[in-house]
Design a binder for these strands. Structure first.
Lengths: 269, 269
DNA sequence: CAGTGGTCTAGACCACACT
DNA sequence: GTGTGGTCTAGACCACTGG
């Protein structure tokens, strides 16, 4: 496992930094390693015990648990108290990740491309101002894009960003790629969380035409607000997804705090 | 914080059991307590430091972190390395929880009720068998229900369960309540995870009539498979939600593993 | 009963934010 | 520099599963 940042032992040695910026902590390394190994195993097969993993990878049991916690959270493994840790059945979805359109299409095995339909600067207006937590008179940069998958229309998207935060965005010639990537790399804007509201709608004449489907077709309408590390809204986007080409897959969990009253326990399997 | 299950100190004392069945661990108690207190605070206000909380509640810092981890995961707080832990802005949704229809409506401030349209036993068939991981000839119990919110139709739902697991279900007279509750309490079936696929559709004549909307209206089509603690499918349900009365709200996160290349850091706020 | 995951402690150093 | 969250260790007991 190499060095050791916080180990009482080998205090010195090379820097092996630790944080979210690409450098790797032990539990992160272990998590990835286990993730890989899990891929080659049968669902429901038993993993080594936590103590065994700790010994094998020369880390403490807590570190092993930190890695397994993340994998369990991601749905890659599940634990049964007293019995062991098991490989989970493959999920239909990588659950609830914030992904760019490009990444999303990639995950679906489709090639993403984009046509910029319009880009301009206006006043935010009431609704967008509310989403972005600004004054309605604040200048916002608007970006309307038709997003394609395998060269066929998939999604009609309108993004709003506070102009003050993205100077020169409108002048760029790479707005047909991942907007999140541009925001991260060139504006230091890290969208780490987003709130989304999905509706089902029927398309009007104009949207239907742009998306290349009959008027009245079903579509998803999505309103999204993206937040930075400090939980401040940075981006407000509205999208229309063709329902004949798109669906939403997600895994939901029953977490803590139920009102157990309860008699019988769950049977063996 | 009372006793202490694993503390080297006060080893004896009354049992204060620990697990998912209603008994409470220290981090669970602390989590709930903090959750309550957070409710009364302004978003973005600073919480006490982890060390401070540890001292105040007489627990170790690790335990505090366990509680805060859960709150951060749930979107109730966020952390900034080096700066502190802060109250998160209220989310539009309790993110990705597996909830029963009844709970879902409750959360939306609506009163749930149910009309059982049909209930019978048939062979699973190919599709359902695939979802439930059984043979196509396996007997399944089918339950078709019209679910109402504030006495008006909201959702048309068809549930499939392996008959062998739910003997006598069809004879029950309380199928107009929470199915999950019945499964948990009387059959020891704990659905802890579900995979869902959401589509947008337009309603045909028959479904539209049952839901009380014009034919051709937009609706959500949901296919769900519920799993028990051991990750085995137990329930397969298909639903149609009226789009004029329902939307899906969820929070997505950018978790680990990005390909940081990266120059600038995010600005102050 | 042995063995596994779940909880908890005490203490240490590191990376980062803010002044 | 000071103080905060992030990582890590070593060791202990508890609650549970399963033969």
């Amino acid at each position: 496992m190499t060095p050791a940042p916080g180990s009482p032992g080998e205090r010195t040695g090379e820097r092996r930094p630790v944080d979210e910026y690409g450098r790797l902590s032990k539990h992160e390394v272990l998590r990835r390693r286990l993730r890989r190994e899990i891929g080659h195993r049968e669902p429901h097969s038993l993993l080594p015990t936590e103590r065994e993993l700790a010994a094998r990878y020369q880390v403490s049991r807590s570190t092993v648990r930190q890695a397994l916690d993340a994998l369990a959270e991601a749905g890659a493994v599940y634990r049964v108290h007293g019995a062991g840790t098991f490989v989970a059945a493959p999920t239909i979805s990588k659950s609830h990740m914030l992904t760019s359109f490009t990444e999303d299409m990639q995950a679906r095995g489709l090639q993403a491309s984009t046509r910029v339909l319009a880009s301009d600067e206006t006043e935010a207006g009431r609704r967008t101002a509310e989403d972005l937590g600004t004054e309605p008179t604040e200048k916002v940069t608007r970006l309307v894009r038709l997003r394609m998958a395998d060269a066929r229309p998939m999604c009609l998207e309108t993004a709003h960003l506070r102009s003050a935060r993205v100077p020169g965005l409108l002048a760029r010639d790479d707005l047909d790629g991942s907007l999140y990537r541009v925001l991260e790399r060139d504006y230091g804007l890290h969208l780490v969380r987003a709130e989304q509201a999905w509706s089902a709608v029927t398309l009007d004449e104009r949207s239907a035409a742009l998306l290349g489907v009959p008027s009245g077709s079903a579509a998803f309408h999505v309103r999204r607000v993206g937040m930075n590390e400090r939980d401040r809204p940075q981006e407000a986007t509205t999208s229309l997804y063709r329902a004949d080409r798109y669906d939403v897959r997600l895994t939901v969990r029953r977490t803590h705090s139920r009102d157990r009253s309860g008699p019988p326990r769950s049977p063996r399997v």
